[in-house]
Design a protein around this nucleic acid. Sequence first.
DNA 1: GAGCTGTTTTTGTGATCACAAAAACCGATG
DNA 2: CATCGGTTTTTGTGATCACAAAAACAGCTC
Lengths: 229, 229
Amino acid sequence: MQDQSPPPAHKPVPPLVSPRSENVSSAHDKVYRGLRTRIMHGELPPAHALTLRGIGREFDVSMTPAREAVQRLVAEGALFMSSSGRVATPELSNERIEELAALRALLEVELASRALPRAHMALIERLQTINGTIAEAIAHKDAVAYIRTNLEFHRTLYLRAQAPAMLAMCETVWLQLGPTMRALYGRLQRTELPQFHRAIVAALRAGDEPGLRLAVRSDVTQGLKLLAS
Amino acid sequence: MQDQSPPPAHKPVPPLVSPRSENVSSAHDKVYRGLRTRIMHGELPPAHALTLRGIGREFDVSMTPAREAVQRLVAEGALFMSSSGRVATPELSNERIEELAALRALLEVELASRALPRAHMALIERLQTINGTIAEAIAHKDAVAYIRTNLEFHRTLYLRAQAPAMLAMCETVWLQLGPTMRALYGRLQRTELPQFHRAIVAALRAGDEPGLRLAVRSDVTQGLKLLAS
DNA sequence: GAGCTGTTTTTGTGATCACAAAAACCGATG
DNA sequence: CATCGGTTTTTGTGATCACAAAAACAGCTC
């Protein structure tokens, strides 16, 4: 009976590899950001289930930071939590999608309108470059790359609006739509490049505010109308 | 001091008062909702600091659910977290307040517009009743009651819009403005009852959509314009 | 062979603990 | 009297554990 009653057992101090030095930015933030970009970029399909222990294993942290990250994403609508606490990416109803599309239109038209007077040449050229990257993603039939670069186009423009709270709300909507957009563009297999993006650039160049508002509204609305099929 | 040398003895199982039976809805939700309504209703001034252990003591839970609730509120912008992890109610800059006011106008005009075709007589009468309660709160110089009933007026109307995602975003904005509204109305000491609320009710009764949009926009904007003083 | 029941595994929840860093405190010194 | 130094206290962070409930699985009966 060598180890009959291991009295201490109380070894709660694990490695402790000295987490200081270097701005690790708190482990749960790493998990939060990792999951957030994955969801927003459409790397996860709708109704994809996640487990806290699985997340912890993947990001090499314990359950505590994983839970905080998940809670935060649930609060933002990026994940849905069942009554038993299980979390999964949302499977949106048609009414919900239409409502989120209306929200996108409302917010993004305003953001674009505010960005217009501050849009200089360098910004417009950057937007055109991004448009080229989007065309590449479409040519490669890479849905994730398409979603990511498409959002980058919009964010680049809206950053000029100098309206951080409004942009944050906008990104929350994108987050909620992430898995749905993946499912949508995944089965859509579009081959044309976004026509409205060119209209946006043209309106910016011309300083045409009504044209810009219409182009943004059309771009935001068009993709999400196809799901009625 | 007083080296008790507390023998751990490994007794991690506390009372465990059988949390089953009854839908306790998970302890952190109780904390979240409690803090959320307190912040939204303006019971806390701006820059009011909170501690996890203090929250846990107040709601009679441990630090874990308190942390989750705080994380969630931070994600929604209801609390701000310093780099060292301390949390406090936000002290908004003037630009931020103006931006949030613009967001309120954008969202609430749309919500009111969507609610208009569904607004029946019972709703209009309910709104008038709430207006009476608001007048009482003003008479009693009760800032918290004023904020609470004022938000109730708006929420009652917007619920008819059948747009839950939009209403949720709207409430997030209210949440961020809670402490600021307390500070504002606290030192304002207004005695007149809200003129635009009557305009909203009148426009609803007349089915006048442009009038409704203008009235809502004015009501939302007016209060927050005074802070330039 | 299909359906149901009892068991086993998985999973979320909340409490506790050790630790690091920030904050508060407090005394000594110029 | 103010300021600086060190010490003590407070506070957030993350890991771990026990437990309950849900899910998965197995075995048994009809």
